[in-house]
Simulated scan of single mutants.
Amino acid sequence: MSRRMRFYAARRRLCHHNCFPAQELSECGPFKPPLHAFDLAGNTEARRKQCRGVAKAVQKIPVILTRPKGSNSVFKAGIAPNVRDRLEFIRSPLLEITPIEQSADCSGAQHAIFTSANGVKLAPNGNGRRAFCVGRKTTELAQSHGWDGVFAGATVTGLKEYVLTQQPQGEIHHYSGVFVRGNVAKELSAAGLNVMNVPLYDQRLLPFSAEALAVLQAKTPVIVPLFSPRTAAHFGAMAPAHPKLYIIAMSSAVADSLEEIAVSQLMVAQEPTAKSMAVCVEYLILNDSLG
């Protein structure tokens, strides 16, 4: 990997011609100062028009959406409109969520652990029982499904530490997919808690869509946000060599799963949230980082 960046991106940028800081490419500043202000900076009216001309000529940058169907709306909505207008979203889910049948009753536990929204959607109704959740969105979703949802951390590691401090008594079910990262049930059980993993869905790997593959085989810049270690590993195994590949990883664990794939830039979100991922996209576009 050529570069890895952890950052919290500012939303403001400088125009190509060193004009005043601007939030939109269509202007050379968030306000229109007197012309003499531009003259003092060496920016004439003609150059201001040139700035606008550059913005209009910019090609849309493809962004490959790798999350399962129906999981991209929060991420896309979090991108500022002036940036979103410069992007071309290409759907290519690399995972398909498939519910699986349970051979035994899995609804009788006193507590639950949720490390994904899919676990919440397929689990029994909470009926007021306590649920320890990873992420704010998963917590809110659990609450809407009848659970007494508690935000237990932004990562699986944080959740395990939090649950151990709470020492919940009785049976705990970790509702998850077939492929689980972090050994939640095993590690908490080893620490003395009664935790059982209950897989509710399979995560079937998918190939690239035809449109995504065409973009990856081209020479133009492409942005690929990756939200899970398994998706990242799958992407790295399939992706052809690309001279201008910009990857945004939701966490260090996601970035590490890419192994030795060559990228122009690898960015790790400040927080493992869709909003932080959106900020990374804004940074790439507004700071002219794409070659």
Rank of each mutant, 00 (worst) to 15 (best):
Lys121Arg: 15
Met238Arg: 07
Ala104Thr: 13
Pro68Tyr: 03
Ile64Asp: 01
Phe38Cys: 13
Lys32Gly: 02
Pro243Asp: 07
Arg13His: 11
Leu159Met: 05
Val83Asn: 08
Ile223Ser: 08
Ser26Gln: 06
Met1Leu: 12
Gly291His: 05
Ala241Pro: 05
Ala117Asp: 02
Tyr8Phe: 14
Ser107Gly: 03
Thr157Ser: 14
His16Ala: 14
Ala233Glu: 15
Ser144Asn: 02
Asn197Met: 10
Leu14Tyr: 15
Tyr175Cys: 03
Pro225Gln: 03
Gly153Arg: 03
Pro124Asp: 08
Asn118Phe: 07
Asn82Met: 10
Met196Cys: 09
Arg6Ala: 09
Gly146Ser: 07
Arg86Asp: 08
Phe89Pro: 02
Phe75Ala: 06
Val178Lys: 15
Cys133Phe: 05
Ile223Tyr: 05
Asp39Phe: 13
Gln23Asn: 13
Ser71Lys: 15
Arg6Phe: 08
Gly119Cys: 04
Ala237Asn: 13
Ser176Arg: 14
Leu205Tyr: 09
Val180Phe: 10
Pro240Thr: 09
Ala77His: 12
Gln166Asp: 10
Ala237Met: 09
Arg6Ser: 13
Gly78Gln: 06
Asn127Gly: 13
Ala185Trp: 01
Ala104Leu: 11
Thr273Cys: 10
Thr115Met: 05
Asn18Pro: 00
Ile100Glu: 05
Leu95Thr: 04
Phe114Pro: 11
Val184Lys: 10
Ala241Ile: 11
Leu200Trp: 03
Val156Trp: 06
Pro33Lys: 08
Leu164Tyr: 12
Leu40Glu: 15
Ser116Met: 04
Ser189Val: 00
Ser92Pro: 05
Ile248Trp: 04
Ala9Asp: 08
Asp39Trp: 12
Leu188Arg: 07
Leu95Gly: 00
Arg130Lys: 14
Phe20Ser: 11
Val279Leu: 15
Leu286Asp: 14
Lys186Tyr: 11
Ser289Lys: 12
Ala233Asp: 14
Phe89Asn: 06
Ser116Thr: 11
Ser92Thr: 06
Gly146Tyr: 04
Leu193Trp: 03
Val178Ser: 13
Ala123Gly: 11
Lys160His: 08
Ala274Phe: 12
Ala112His: 03
His234Met: 10
Asn125Phe: 12
Ala46Ser: 14
Leu122Val: 08
Trp147Asp: 11
Pro99Arg: 00
Gly153Met: 03
Cys19Asn: 10
Ala37Gly: 07
Leu290Met: 00
Val58Phe: 13
Ile172Thr: 07
Gln166Cys: 15
Leu87His: 08
Ile113Thr: 09
Leu206Gln: 15
Ala218Glu: 08
Lys121Cys: 04
Phe208His: 09
Arg47Asn: 04
Gly170Ala: 09
Cys133Lys: 02
Gly182Pro: 01
Lys219Pro: 09
Ser189Thr: 13
Leu193Gly: 01
Glu259Arg: 13
Ser257Tyr: 09
Ala131Met: 06
Thr220Tyr: 05
Val224Phe: 03
Glu171Val: 14
Leu290Glu: 01
Ser251Leu: 06
